[in-house]
Design a protein around this nucleic acid. Structure first.
Length: 926
RNA sequence: GGGCUCAUAGCUCAGCGGUAGAGUGCCUCCCUUGCAAGGAGGAUGCCCUGGGUUCGAAUCCCAGUGAGUCCA
């Protein structure tokens, strides 16, 4: 196996007089201008040396630093690119959040399928890394939200065989390192102090040599040279244990942490004080945190020390605090008391910024994907705010950050935060009640609350174990939270196994066929065309026919495939399905039209028309929903049909009835305006620059050009479906219902065109039928229904009370009553064929008179008994019923004073009743 | 996308095969007239919907609907 040492021997290092050394402390190889340097410079080998002694002559704010970086690279031939959303799952499905600038260009650009927006380019990309969430605020340097400043260059090997969307080399390693040096110099840094550490990079199936750039103890940049891909036969084994080989594209991927650079320029004790001083001042004041000069001095010295410690997980933080206290010569508890509130405030500032990024980018809280992450961050922030006693509402804290970041949808962001906060409060209230109950239960028994209960509370009700412990303590119950609590939670989910669906094999047969020419985009209303059969493949059922050109629309974008016929001369074959594979359209037919034949195709026009109408209507409803509900509304899925279609949209609460009406109104308004629906195929970068990422409601398509569908000047989307020419062709749109698909996603079901009329007729038919049944005017149905329902309930009550009266009347001497003396008491044996309520009421009436009651009924096709026993009589009613019911082939039971039972043999009911006196006597004697 | 939990009086919940309950709120009366007052009486339920098991289902099983929650 080769290693990558040679990859780091740059001409630039040679020319600039660098030397390569091995750090005696950690063993890493690094390059430096300072021939006397021993150590690599990175903690823990060396400490931070910029705290209270900034690394650059001038102090920069975040904004100033971002501008300094971007304009430096702009001046050096890079094009400045606007940042991408933080929700990376909007253009890729392998990750949820943008964690680095290179994420913007994966996978389509890095693979060479799609050209980069500029080459070379520079960008400052907002990123969110949830991995560090527990450290935020505590270490002085971790943030969950950050901006990665970067410059990228996309290169293709000269000898590459395949075609790529970019060609040749822009620049590679030497220039990248030279730029880095030059940028440091432009900031006024002493470049003698910089060290370049060899640190190969691996990630996401790619790998390459990489360099960490260390200045005054801080890692300020990482220069990654992505040039290898995972390959079982590769000759390089990387640190993940896999082997890699070089690929045709090679990409400069750099990352300069905006926050780190800003911090370096200011030399404050923690990064937080450098990047959002205003938010921290506000929070401190709001939480009422004040310090004496002596305390301030102590905190500053502690922060300096803890910033230098190597702490990468929370367990270490407590150890580190002890260490710091010792060095400062203060009591660790005093230190904790001083520092913890500050740590909380730092975390709140960072989390608020994270939330502003998330909601600003249109993420809606939910129980899945990015929405779930947003919910977790919000809840955590809420807890921190409550812990430290900040009484500013959460939506205001997030809004402060949103304002600073310049988002235009601040009102929606606030509304989302408020809604989500309200939901969380309800969860907490629900949880508290549950825990209080549980705590009381276990406080009485002196047993600790079992771990199983804790797991249940957390897993099913979202209640953190520390909250359980807190409430339990107030109520005098004991809780032991196991150290491996969260591992136990994970175990509960362990059983879940899913078979990973295998990638379907690529169809080799299609490799030599040309892409099918798609006529359906030329005239979306045409249904007839002529074509040549290029090839026919047999399949399990029927055939796949490939034509040189087609009018048939294949399944895609939630639009079902066209149907129709292909005819050659006298013979015609039915097209039952159509799909597209690698640009080749396969017509699934019931018979073989013959390879090489000249065919006439006819698309089922009625079907096509309905699909076109529904597809354009989908765009209108998406637009109307955005207008009515807010700009965050985004498509989460769609399916067109012939009779109705559905559009799933992201929204943070149930869609109110009045909003449904308003969406319907706005959509139909557009229909009435009869605006033109047009298509165009611009270069994707032009399209993105003009319309932004909201173009891709249904996913990001590959390729250099994208097809855009414009509805007048109100809506534009990248879309491959077939549409009507003018909105008026839709006729009308009827929203049928909305339903929640999952938290944060609402499904809007609607019908358009003829289907809208039909749907309305169906609803009307139902109403008219109901009206006929109630014998009222259709418009009076709700009122009549309510009246009937009320009346029905009143009658139920009246019947109950009449049954009581009837029972009393019967008990006081009706027919079919046998009285039997049982020693001191009388037993009443009675048959009355009524329902269970009547039997019970009658039995009760007898018992009230002081008699034992045995009441039987043969109504409703089965025999049933009720036995009642006055309190002072020692007969077990349950046992009596059990005996009697056995005689009719059934069973029964109940408490000793009142029991019920029965069986299927009605004809033996009288026989059983006749035996009742004997049974009672036996019971009395027993 | 998967797992789990829940659905009973206006509200909060108990009941978990055998006559639907408590607290609170509501109505009436009494006692007091001060600050979630005390006493007596009363009304209020398609026990989420549909199917199944059973002599009998609020209760057990299945499906649906709605709410909540954890994980990727």
């Amino acid at each position: 196996m080769s290693d990558l040492e040679a990859e780091y021997r740059l001409d630039y290092f040679e020319e600039e007089g660098f030397t390569r050394r091995e750090c005696p402390s950690c063993g890493v190889y690094f390059w430096t201008r300072d021939a006397d340097r021993e150590l690599c410079g990175e903690p823990p080998c060396e400490d931070y040396s910029f705290i209270d002694d900034p690394g650059f002559p001038e102090a920069y704010s975040l904004t100033e630093m971002r501008e300094a970086f971007l304009s430096f690279f702009e001046e050096n031939g890079h094009e400045r690119i606007e940042p991408y959303p933080v929700a990376a799952n909007r253009w890729r499905d392998d990750v949820l959040l943008t964690q680095a600038s290179i994420y913007d260009f994966q996978p389509l650009v890095t693979s060479g399928e799609t050209p980069p927006p500029a080459n070379p380019l520079t960008i400052s990309q907002p990123c969110i890394r949830m991995q560090d969430i527990d450290n935020v605020g505590k270490t002085g340097r971790h943030t969950m939200a950050f901006e990665m400043m970067a410059h990228h260059a996309f290169n293709t090997r000269e000898d590459a065989e395949a075609d790529y969307a970019y060609e040749g080399e822009v620049y590679w390693k030497d220039e990248t390192v030279a730029y880095c040096d030059a940028f440091f110099e432009s900031m006024g840094a002493n470049i003698e102090e910089i060290t370049y550490l060899e640190d190969p990079w691996v990630g996401g199936g790619n790998a390459g040599p990489a360099i960490e750039v260390i200045y005054k103890g801080a890692e300020l940049a990482t220069l990654v040279f992505m040039c290898m891909e995972q390959d079982p036969d590769g000759e390089y084994e990387m640190k993940d244990g896999n082997t890699y080989s070089f690929m045709d594209t090679y990409i400069v991927d750099t990352g300069y942490g905006l926050e780190r650079w800003t911090w370096m320029s200011q030399g404050t004790a923690t990064v937080y004080e450098a990047i959002y001083p205003d938010a921290i001042d506000f929070l401190k004041e709001n939480a009422g945190i004040e310090h004496t000069d002596e305390e301030r001095e102590l905190i500053h010295r502690a922060a300096k020390l803890s910033g230098r410690l190597d702490i990468d997980d929370v367990d270490d933080v407590e150890d580190a605090r002890g260490e710091v206290a010792e060095k400062l010569g203060v009591d660790v508890d005093r230190l904790r008391e001083l520092i913890e509130p500050l740590e909380t405030i730092y975390a709140i500032a960072d989390h608020s910024r994270t939330l502003a990024y998330m909601f600003g980018d249109g993420i809606v809280p939910s129980n899945v994907a990015t929405g779930y992450l947003a919910r977790m961050v919000l809840r955590r922030t809420k807890r921190l705010v409550d812990d430290v006693g900040v009484d500013a509402p959460l939506d205001e804290l997030v809004d402060m950050q949103a304002e600073r970041l310049g988002y235009g949808n601040r009102d929606t962001i606030r509304e989302i935060v408020r809604t989500e906060e309200r939901k969380y409060r309800k969860t907490l209230e629900r949880g508290s009640r549950k825990v209080e109950q549980l705590a009381d239960e276990y406080a009485a028994t002196d047993d600790p609350i079992p771990t199983e209960e804790l797991l249940e509370l957390y897993d099913s009700h979202g209640i953190q174990p520390d909250m359980v412990a807190e409430i339990a303590a107030e109520r005098g119950a004991v809780v032991d939270v196991p150290d491996d609590f969260y591992a136990l939670v994970a175990d509960r989910h362990e059983r879940v196994t899913d078979g990973t669906d295998a990638e379907p094999d690529r169809d080799e047969r299609l490799a030599d066929l040309p892409e099918t020419e798609k006529l359906y985009y030329d005239d979306q209303g045409r249904t007839e065309f002529e074509a040549v059969v290029l090839d026919v493949f047999e399949r399990d059922e029927g055939y796949d026919v490939v034509l040189d050109q087609t009018m048939f629309y294949p399944e895609g974008g939630g639009q079902p495939a066209d149907r129709g016929q292909l005819s050659a001369g006298e013979t015609a074959v039915e097209v039952v399905d159509v799909e597209e594979v690698d640009g080749v359209v396969l017509h699934h037919t019931d018979a073989d039209p013959g390879k090489g034949e000249f065919v006439r195709g006819r698309v089922d026009g009625g079907r096509r028309e309905r699909l076109r109408v529904h597809h354009t209507a989908t765009h209108l409803i998406g637009h109307a929903a955005r207008e009515v509900l807010g700009g965050h509304v985004r498509q989460a899925g769609a399916q067109k049909g012939l009779n109705s279609s559905r559009l799933d949209v992201r929204h943070y609460e149930r869609i109110a009835r009045e909003d449904v009406r308003e969406i319907e109104r706005v959509a139909n308004e557009l229909v009435r305006r009869n605006v033109a629906v047009t298509q165009e195929w611009p270069h994707r970068h032009e399209a993105e620059a003009e319309h932004g990422f909201d173009l891709y409601q249904g996913g990001v398509p590959p390729g250099t050009n994208v097809r855009l569908i414009h509805v007048g000047d109100v809506d534009v989307q990248a879309c491959a479906g077939t549409h009507v020419d003018r909105t008026g062709d839709i006729g009308s749109i009827k929203l049928l219902k909305t339903e929640p698909v999952q938290d944060g996603v609402e499904r809007i079901v609607f019908a358009a065109g003829d289907a809208a009329i039909e749907a309305t007729q169906r609803t009307e038919d139902a109403l008219f039928d109901a009206a006929t049944e109630l014998d009222v005017d259709p418009l009076d149905v709700p009122e009549a229904a309510e009246r009937f329902f009320e009346e029905w309930k009143a009658r139920g009550k009246e019947i109950d009370s009449l049954k009581e009266q009837l029972a009393e009347a019967r008990a006081s001497g009706g027919a079919d009553v046998d009285e039997v003396a049982l020693g001191d008491v009388t037993a009443v044996i009675q048959r009355l064929d009524g329902d269970a309520d009547e039997l019970r009421a009658t039995a009760n009436a007898h018992v009230d008179d002081g008699s034992v009651a045995v009441v039987g009924s043969g109504a409703n096709g089965s025999a049933s008994f009720v036995v009642g026993v006055p309190a002072d009589v020692s007969i077990n009613a349950g046992a009596v019923v059990s005996d009697l019911a056995g005689r009719v082939g059934g069973g029964g039971g109940g408490p000793p004073d009142f029991a019920q039972g029965g069986g299927p043999d009605v004809e033996r009911l009288d026989e059983a009743l006749a035996a009742a006196p004997d049974v009672l006597r036996r019971m009395l004697e027993a």
